[in-house]
Design a protein around this nucleic acid. Structure first.
Lengths: 146, 146
DNA sequence: GAATTTAGTTTACATTGTTAACCTTTATTT
DNA sequence: AAATAAAGGTTAACAATGTAAACTAAATTC
């Protein structure tokens, strides 16, 4: 396979990532939440203790974006901000009952879209793929070229 | 490797794609063009005959986005729109001398970032990776779930 | 206790994605 | 040939996203 005359590798990845998200949004179109599904999962895993700053790190995003994500999820009734008593600059992010009710459907949808994406690939190949992608992700980390 | 407790696959790809583009933009920061590098390459390959509609298909984008891309490249002096005489609805997209002069640097930068991304992976692995990604891209094509 | 740092918010601006309405030119229908 | 539809491109509007700067309030450092 010639590498020349192909679209840049990063462009290919970004395109696939976008299509993945579209498939997920379609599967979950009956929910109020239209995006930020992974944030909900991370907040759930935070067991009521995660802060916006910590969430920003997990999402590899910045705190301004996280404010908007939480505003969005909060407006839709998925998340509540709770002042941390021991450090009153921080908020703990807590899922509402609504979010907890819908979370299984979200996780299932993610699994299904991932399975759709991987159709025709063996488990071995998928594991290799993840390993390679993590190598590539590290290679492209800012500290490697800035 | 556990697939659970990882970030959604599409999110990983989108992140890597974004980092790839950042690396490329950094490498090419001395150029006037700050993006749309791949569009320039496609226009070059179109040998002065490609139209906006055709470019939209190659970019897997829509015609509105392409208008903006060509506006941008045209404002920066990289591309000219030339009316097609045989079908006066269309424009041929033509690179300027400036674009042709900078194109080698752009292609080199893309190659370098791609090589940086693939550091530590064998040629065999890279070829497998491309093959797998194209399978995944097809799997996630709209027609497979809409 | 003054200065700095941290968590979060707000504002601003540019880019991107999406949709709809529109103009002009070409193709199709009848 | 006239009417209609379709195609190529443009414009406008709106929401989402990325990035940066300035800000408040609380905590930490010196």
């Amino acid at each position: 396979m010639e590498i020349k005359n192909q679209q840049p590798f990063g462009r290919l990845l970004a395109l696939i990532g976008k299509n993945y998200l579209h498939a997920l949004q379609l599967k979950l179109r009956d929910l109020d939440a239209e995006r930020n599904f992974y944030a909900l999962i991370l907040i759930d895993e935070g067991k009521g203790k995660i802060t916006q700053q910590e969430l920003a790190e997990l999402l590899e995003s910045d705190k301004v974006s996280v404010v908007r994500i939480i505003d969005n999820l909060s407006d839709l009734g998925y998340v509540k901000r709770e002042k941390v008593e021991t450090d009153r600059r921080k908020y703990s992010l807590v899922l509402t009952a609504k979010a907890e009710k819908e979370l299984p459907e979200i996780k299932t949808a993610i699994t299904e879209v991932t399975e759709l994406a991987f159709r025709g690939l063996s488990v071995t190949k998928i594991e290799e793929l993840y390993a390679d992608l993590h190598i590539i992700k590290n290679n492209l980390n800012n500290r490697n070229y800035e």
